[in-house]
Simulated assay, not measured.
Amino acid sequence: MDKRQFPMQIKGVLFDKDGTLFDFHRTWIPILESAALTAARGDVSLVPGLMAAGGYDPATGRVASGSVIAAGNTPELALLWLQSLPHWEAADLTMRLDEIFASEAPHRSEPVTDLVAFLTALRGDGFRVGIATNDSAASALATIGQFGLSGLVEFYCGYDSGYGTKPAPGMVHAFCDAVDLEPADVAVVGDNFHDLEMGMAAGAGLRVGVLTGTSAHEDLAPHADLVIGSIVELPALLAGLR
């Protein structure tokens, strides 16, 4: 790694939530299956088709990188599922899915490491910390509270926070405004190319892909400055840039 590639000192880190701080498949497959069953109003036969439409492959147990399940937000998932569920209105299904996600995600989320220790160390090294997710803000807040991160995460936002959705730059700019940094001072860390494209659109100083979500190295490498196995490797990476 050549420091000369990254001349600006990184002072803040904006994390994606699912697939980055939390293992995507262990967390979200059970939640989405539960949501699909609710959306299908108990018709078990519809669940596999809904999951497959979203990008889930039952043969591998994996979700395709860039699919609606991997990278979309709740309204996008609702619109996709409405093709098979004409008895719903889009707004009603979106609201019901968000209720399920906000209720279940905090309790089902599987952290990739001890997040309190991890974020405490980052904050101790002087980094400002935020979370930007295409999940809802309510789900993000509930998960932050569930894992005892409220005093460590200085900013969070969801697709419905008013800053736009990934890959638009608004979430990065909102984080910068909240912690008084410039985009070039910020590392954006995520498991999908829409996280990294958000960082590029915002002018983030560093874009880091992680492999704890739905994407392989080859999916992320064209969009990232660096690709690492998980956030566990991030502190050493950031220290190497100082």
Score class of each variant (00 low, 15 high):
78 A>V: 04
65 S>T: 07
73 N>V: 07
74 T>C: 08
60 T>R: 06
59 A>P: 01
60 T>I: 12
91 A>R: 15
83 Q>R: 15
78 A>T: 04
66 G>N: 08
88 W>P: 05
74 T>K: 14
85 L>H: 01
89 E>N: 10
80 L>Q: 08
75 P>N: 09
78 A>P: 05
75 P>V: 04
61 G>K: 04
71 A>C: 09
76 E>N: 05
79 L>T: 08
59 A>F: 13
77 L>F: 00
83 Q>M: 03
81 W>M: 06
74 T>W: 01
84 S>R: 14
62 R>A: 12
66 G>L: 07
83 Q>C: 04
87 H>E: 15
68 V>L: 11
79 L>F: 00
72 G>W: 01
74 T>H: 07
81 W>E: 02
70 A>G: 13
73 N>H: 15
71 A>Y: 05
71 A>G: 14
90 A>N: 01
76 E>H: 07
91 A>C: 11
70 A>P: 12
89 E>P: 00
60 T>G: 14
80 L>V: 05
61 G>A: 09
75 P>R: 09
63 V>M: 12
88 W>S: 07
90 A>F: 00
69 I>C: 05
89 E>F: 03
80 L>M: 11
73 N>S: 12
69 I>Q: 12
65 S>D: 14
66 G>I: 03
80 L>K: 11
91 A>P: 11
60 T>Y: 10
59 A>M: 11
63 V>C: 13
81 W>S: 02
72 G>N: 00
